[in-house]
Design a protein around this nucleic acid. Structure first.
Lengths: 189, 189
DNA sequence: CCGCTCATGTAACTGGTTACATGATTTA
DNA sequence: TAAATCATGTAACCAGTTACATGAGCGG
């Protein structure tokens, strides 16, 4: 039994949480999520549920509304067990370590830009981050109202993250203001 | 000209920051980083620098120490420009949106576990996160001492993130304590 | 000399991506 | 009925993974 990928675990979770559903419904969840990490593309989801079905973690029944075929996927008992195993400690290293952050990665090399464009970078980052924070906030309220505790807590996690990034960018701005001119030539050797 | 992948941009940045270096040196940086996101595997790095060389963003000169061949990769002017373009606004959506977090994803479905194992999950997460936070803290001090401002600021970003996650998990623990028993049956439909 | 680590690489795989194809249903 | 969009899918591609291969240099 190969381990579940992040996306696979997540899809199992969604089917568990929402009950039997079509791949299309699953996609909508990804597409409407404020996290842009997964595209929720058809090319990802449809083959994935097929895979899970072959592994007997999902089973599907065809259903037709009018002349339209579609598939309802549901968890099998083995699927539930797999989901639980995926959730169970010990958590994989990648889940507890510092999560990747493309913004952070970029900032590391900001010195490669001339001053003016560094400021432009920061301004863009702060403005868009803030706008996105609003979205997450709204999303958080919505999920709170939905009554699903863990769904809400997850959204809270996202909110914490976004606030931390904002605070960090404030710190960066402060640090950049405090220091005089410096060229954009590379540092090493 | 296809866009640079995250890893490609990052490698360009590392070569920029550290001056001409071997693929091996680049790998060491990834391997010693406290973020487990990239494996820094040989299979990722060696083909990657070749790719960048074909695209004239890096150039390499073979050098031999004793009987040992190795390649020193350096940025070309086009490489510097590519790096700068990669850093320049507008930032890609994925860089400003909520970053992916496997821990958060898992927590969303925690209700699929029976109570006891939920608590085990949380305990494991909090303990290991805290340990990891220490690492990041140490790393942060080290980079601060190194004198590279942006390297330090990046590490600070990681620290902010980890602290936010810790605060979030505290919140989760509080929420889980506050609420009575609830089964692990799926919610939907 | 044997084995360990350094250092450069290759091979096979895989899980995602974008882009496209197809047909049903709804709306203007 | 024409256009939009809903819904299911496929095809080609690609970056990054693990696992392996190779050989240099070094310490016991």
């Amino acid at each position: 039994m190969p381990k579940l990928s992040e996306l696979e675990g997540c899809v199992l979770g969604l089917v568990w949480a929402g009950g039997p559903c079509t791949p299309y419904a699953i996609r909508q969840i990804f597409l409407s999520s404020p996290s842009p990490h997964w595209s929720g593309s058809a090319g990802a989801i449809y083959p994935l549920v097929r895979r899970l079905e072959r592994r007997r973690l999902l089973r599907s029944e065809t259903q037709a509304t009018g002349r339209r075929r579609s598939r309802l996927y549901a968890l099998t008992p083995a699927g539930t067990r797999a989901l639980q195993a995926w959730l169970s400690p010990p958590l994989p290293e990648v889940a507890v370590g510092v999560p990747a952050d493309p913004l952070r990665t970029r900032l590391r090399f900001l010195e490669a830009l001339p001053q003016a464009r560094r400021r432009a970078f920061l301004a863009d980052a702060r403005a868009r981050l803030h706008r996105h924070l609003r979205l997450v906030q709204a999303d958080c309220r919505k999920r709170r109202a939905s009554g699903d505790r863990f769904d809400y807590l997850m959204a809270r996690g996202a909110l914490h993250q976004m606030r931390a990034r904002e605070a960090w960018l404030r710190e960066v701005a402060r640090a950049m203001k405090g220091v005089g001119k410096q060229g954009s030539r590379r540092r090493g050797a």
